[in-house]
Design a binder for these strands. Structure first.
Length: 645
RNA sequence: GCCGAUGUAGCUCAGUUGGUCAGAGCAGCUGAUUUGUAAUCAGCCGGCCGGCGGUUCGAAUCCGUCCAUCGGCUCCA
């Protein structure tokens, strides 16, 4: 007998070799039906795998992320099985579970698989799922595994196995399909009740663009049809919120092929919105002791050679431009930091002057590959809410905290309630991709880790995600639909100060090197506005929205009164317009609702006589009538509250 | 950049196998209506069917190429 301890701290005795599935059965039939995998001593294994020693066991169901992973991973196998049956001879790459669902990379060989084939594959999957095919785990020697795939002619699997150590190779078999796989898998295909293949796309074998491009099919599956329906509904909602769609509808921005792809044009309402965001941040920065600076859009190529940007990115960026007579070379500014370093160098600093904080809404230009451009989130010209803090090593912590304060205030004012911090460190295996000494890197990485830990924020650590000159702390926010976006970023940098030979005089009367902190709370104005559009579905907070109120006269007769109403609102700094069109009130309301303008003031004979306004709130309907003064004060209050962060 | 898909009026989309196929709705303009909480009616304007080449008696429709957009991959200071 062995002792099995469960998450509720109970310990039960079972015969040696019992499976998690049987433990579940012992607890309840219902649980046994729902168990997808198990975590045994911290390791996720099949529910059908025997347990030989005393262990801590957690049964995993759909409610556990690891349970869902097992389900989706098994779904990928199921899809492969279906594909193999429908298209004999296809070869398989890898088929993992991902954040939302699964995919499988396949080499279709002589077949072509297109979007139209997906329903067919789906149907086959459902058929196979109903057979409740058991996922049978088998450990095989490396040679046998290689022979199997060599015989089958699947060079991708052969390559994968070649890199594995002998003795660790496991195969899983379900129905007629056998796959090299680490597992874990769900007990059988039965729980895959609802499945949807979502898209098909090309993907390089092993992510290497020099290697063959395989066909990747994405899908998702659920144990209940209803969950799939809900998920598909959520996808539809996400599509409705696509910033490219509502950004166009609300006249926030546009693109023109005549200007160039990836170069956004901000329309008046978008510019108004952006201006508000900038003013808001400028206020916070003023309060935090920042100084505003301004730098040009191009800079001598030598500047970026000094910073290292040219060596690192020059080959892939926009070509340099030259002066006609002297032949001097300039680059479109890809980063603001070198310019800010030069501003720092223009003056002498004592330790008493530090920290120095230079802020600029700096527009930068980067050549992004054509296939990578995407709405406002990935563009070739964008404005960073950039700032560089030059401080003493002792001040780093305090300054870093100040930056985090600003970021958190912004998230609060804009209703981003869910976010996690991501500490991005360099890839320890590829140190040559980064500039600067090991010592500097270790110092800055440790600083970021310490500060993040002390802040008490939730955070994850990612290796290989650092900037080439220093580690980063990025803020990933979750929007209203639960999708993650990377927004604000803070970076500690010991390297650029060295490259630019920045100095300050210490209390010892010696020259010292300052530390630089790069930070951008919004990230870029373009990207931030895109995320904001999707997060709010265009219903911006009152303080931010370009048009806060629209006055809707019942007919022309009340235009005079409407003007009086509007000018009173303007005295309160409330932004609005009058709908003077010769339309019925229903029409004016509809159009105003669709433009997501938060308040409508309907005025007609009654309102004019009583000197009141009828208030209608976007998305909520008629709120009854009140005096204009009362309305304006209430609005002002709401706005002040929103901004009081 | 790579793979695949798409590209018809300002917007959303119809246009079967190449032959009155250049259309609709919305928007816009003009006029009528002077309106009470999500679309008043009528008339009109508007397109070199993404660009360029080709096949054909004839191309929005077939082929090639370039550009752009979309879905991914790779990349992201």
């Amino acid at each position: 007998m062995i002792n099995i301890s469960l998450p509720d701290n109970s310990v039960k005795q079972y015969p040696e070799g019992i499976t998690s599935q049987d433990i579940a059965k012992d607890i309840s039939e219902g649980l046994a039906r729902n168990v997808l995998a198990a975590k045994v001593n911290g390791e996720v294994i099949d529910a059908l795998q025997p347990i030989h020693d005393d262990a801590e066991v957690k049964l995993l169901t759909w409610d556990d992320p690891e349970g869902r992973d097992a389900m989706w991973h098994s779904s990928a196998h199921l899809m492969a099985e279906a594909i193999e049956q429908l298209y004999p001879g296809v070869k398989f790459g890898i088929g993992p579970a991902i954040e939302n669902g699964f995919y499988y990379d396949i080499d279709p060989g002589e077949h072509t698989i297109t979007q139209e084939d997906l329903p067919k594959i789906e149907k086959k999957m459902k058929e196979l799922a109903k057979q409740k095919q058991e996922f049978v785990r088998e450990e095989v020697p490396k040679k046998q595994a290689l022979d199997y795939y060599k015989k089958k002619g699947d060079e991708y699997k052969v390559e994968l196995i070649d890199e594995l150590e002998d003795g660790t190779i496991t195969f899983y078999q379900s129905g007629d399909f056998t796959d090299l796989c680490r597992g874990p898998h769900i007990p059988h295909t039965g729980p895959i009740k609802a499945v949807k293949l979502l898209s098909i796309a090309g993907a390089y074998w092993r992510g290497d663009e020099n290697r063959k491009q395989l066909t990747r099919i994405y899908g998702i599956s659920f144990p209940k049809k209803k969950q799939l329906d809900e998920y598909l509904e959520m996808l539809e909602e996400a599509q409705k919120r696509d910033h490219r769609k509502i950004g166009k509808e609300l006249e926030i921005f546009t693109f023109s092929q005549n200007v160039g792809s990836g170069l956004p044009l901000w329309m008046p309402k978008g510019a108004e919105l952006r201006e508000r965001l900038e003013q808001f941040l400028k206020r916070l920065q003023r309060e935090a002791g920042y100084d505003q600076v301004i730098t040009p859009h191009i800079g001598n190529v030598n500047l970026y050679k000094t910073s290292g940007h040219f060596q690192k990115y020059g080959a892939d960026s926009f070509q340099t431009i030259k002066t006609p007579n002297e032949g001097e070379e300039f680059m479109l500014k890809p980063m603001n930091c070198p310019h800010h370093c030069e501003i720092y160098k223009a003056k002498q600093f004592s330790f008493r002057d530090l920290p120095v904080r230079y802020a600029e809404f700096g527009t930068v230009y980067r050549y992004e590959q054509s296939g990578e451009l995407h709405g406002l989130t990935r563009v070739r010209g964008f404005t960073q809410d950039d700032a560089h803090i030059f401080c003493t090593p002792e001040q780093v912590k305090e300054e870093f905290k100040g930056v985090m304060d600003i970021i958190l205030k912004i998230f609060k004012a804009l209703d981003f309630e869910n976010f996690v911090a991501q500490v991005s460190l360099r890839d320890p295996k590829n140190k040559e991709n980064y500039i600067g000494s090991d010592e500097n890197w270790e110092r800055s990485e440790q600083a970021i880790l310490d500060i993040t830990e002390e802040s008490g924020l939730d955070y994850v650590v990612e290796y290989g995600e650092a900037a080439f000159y220093g580690p980063k702390l990025d803020f990933m926010v979750k929007d209203a639909l639960g999708r993650s976006w990377q927004l604000g970023t803070v970076q500690v940098d010991y390297n650029l100060p060295e490259r630019f030979e920045l100095e300050y005089t210490g209390s010892d009367n010696e020259k010292h090197r300052p530390v630089m902190i790069h930070r951008a709370p919004f990230g870029s104005m373009e990207r931030f506005v895109a995320v904001l559009l999707e997060h709010t579905a265009g219903k911006f907070p009152l303080w931010l929205t370009p048009e806060q109120v629209r006055v809707l006269p019942i007919s022309e007769k009340y235009h005079k009164f409407a003007e009086k109403v509007l000018s009173l609102l303007q005295n309160y700094d409330i932004r609005g317009q009058i709908d003077r069109r010769n339309e019925k009130i229903g029409r004016k309301i509809r159009d105003t609702e669709l433009m997501k303008i938060p308040y409508m003031l309907i005025i007609g004979e009654k309102e004019e006589q009583e000197d009141k306004v009828s208030v209608r709130k976007q998305g909520e309907g008629d709120k009854g009538s009140m005096s204009l003064d009362e309305f304006a004060k209430e609005m002002k209050n709401t706005i002040d509250n929103e901004l009081n962060v």
